[in-house]
Amino acid sequence: NRLGIIYEIQGMKAVVLTSEGEFLIIRRRKDMKVGQQVSFENEDIYNV
């Protein structure tokens, strides 16, 4: 599992900021809110 803070939500995608200072786009889940810490898997990351 990886951890990140939700920075922005766009439709079915969420932008998270990881503890390494990396911004990633992941698959959104219904319970996500901006500012929330979430765990996610590598499979949830969109390749940009």
Rank of each mutant, 00 (worst) to 15 (best):
G11S: 08
S39T: 14
R29L: 10
G4T: 01
L3T: 12
R27T: 11
R29K: 14
A14H: 01
R28D: 03
V38F: 03
I45N: 02
T18A: 02
D31T: 13
K33F: 09
I5E: 02
K33R: 14
E20K: 10
V38T: 07
E41D: 14
V48H: 13
G35P: 01
Y7H: 06
N47P: 11
R28K: 15
N47W: 04
I9Q: 01
Q37K: 10
D31M: 08
G4E: 01
Y7K: 10
M32F: 07
E41Y: 12
D31R: 05
S39Y: 12
E22Q: 10
Y46P: 02
G4K: 01
K30M: 14
R28L: 14
V16G: 00
K30S: 13
M12F: 07
N47I: 11
Q37R: 08
L3A: 10
L17D: 00
M32Y: 15
V38Q: 02
I5P: 00
Y7W: 15
I26H: 00
N42I: 14
Q37G: 04
S19V: 05
V38C: 09
K13F: 11
Y46S: 05
E41C: 14
V34T: 05
S19A: 11
N47V: 15
I26M: 03
K13R: 10
R29I: 06
G35D: 05
I9H: 01
E43F: 03
R28Q: 08
S39R: 07
I26T: 01
V15Q: 03
E43G: 05
D31Q: 11
D31C: 13
I25F: 07
M12C: 15
K13T: 11
S19H: 07
D44V: 02
E20I: 07
G35F: 05
D31Y: 11
K33G: 03
V48S: 15
M32E: 02
V48I: 13
T18M: 04
R29V: 05
R2Y: 12
R2L: 13
E41I: 13
V15P: 00
I9K: 01
K33W: 12
R27C: 09
Q36E: 10
N42H: 10
L24Y: 06
S19D: 14
T18D: 03
R27G: 07
G21F: 06
R2P: 02
R27M: 08
V15I: 10
N1Q: 10
I9M: 11
I26Q: 00
N47S: 12
E20H: 14
R2C: 11
N42A: 12
N42Y: 10
S39D: 06
V34D: 02
V16H: 00
G11A: 08
N42M: 13
E22G: 08
E8R: 13
E41W: 06
Q10D: 14
L24S: 04
E43N: 10
R29Y: 05
M32G: 03
D31S: 08
M12Y: 14
E20F: 07
L24M: 09
N1K: 10
V48E: 13
E8V: 08
K13L: 05
V16A: 02
I9P: 00
V16L: 05
I5Q: 04
V48L: 09
N42T: 12
G11E: 12
I5G: 01
I5M: 12
G21P: 01
I5S: 03
M32L: 03
I5F: 12
K13M: 07
N47L: 05
K33Q: 14
S19Q: 15
K30W: 07
G21E: 03
Y46K: 11
E43I: 05
N47E: 15
N1D: 08
L17E: 06
G4W: 02
T18G: 04
R2H: 04
I45F: 03
E22F: 08
D31E: 11
G21W: 03
R2I: 07
K13E: 07
R29M: 06
I26V: 05
G11M: 04
Y46F: 15
G35I: 00
K30C: 15
E22N: 08
R27S: 06
A14C: 13
N47C: 15
E43V: 04
I26F: 02
S19I: 08
D31V: 03
V34N: 03
